[in-house]
């Protein structure tokens, strides 16, 4: 069952309450999104560690229910 943008945002916000999240639906099929996530939790972390925080927030849906999420992350400037 594909996910909608609001579900993705909700899950990420639960794990990263301060996060600013912008989600773009790339294909309109609930399966291909781009997400940019900004959170102070990312400060000082490698990109891999940052992305893993988001994957953990998505609770194992990444690569399964959520086939393709083009993810970029950043700490607040």
């Amino acid at each position: 069952m594909p996910m909608n943008a609001a579900d993705i945002e909700h899950l990420i916000k639960q794990a990263l309450p301060d996060a600013e999240i912008s989600i773009t639906d790339l294909a309109g099929d609930g399966d291909h999104y781009a997400a940019h996530v900004v959170s102070k939790e990312f400060a000082g972390k490698t990109r891999v560690a940052q992305h893993k925080l988001v994957f953990d927030a998505l609770g194992g849906r990444m690569g399964g229910e959520l086939h393709a999420l083009a993810l970029t992350t950043a700490a607040p400037k």
């Binding site: 990109r47 891999v48 992305h51 083009a70 993810l71």
Partner: peptide
């Protein structure tokens, strides 16, 4: 060393 996936 693991560098990342497509996005990274």
């Amino acid at each position: 060393e693991f560098v990342g996936g497509c996005d990274i």
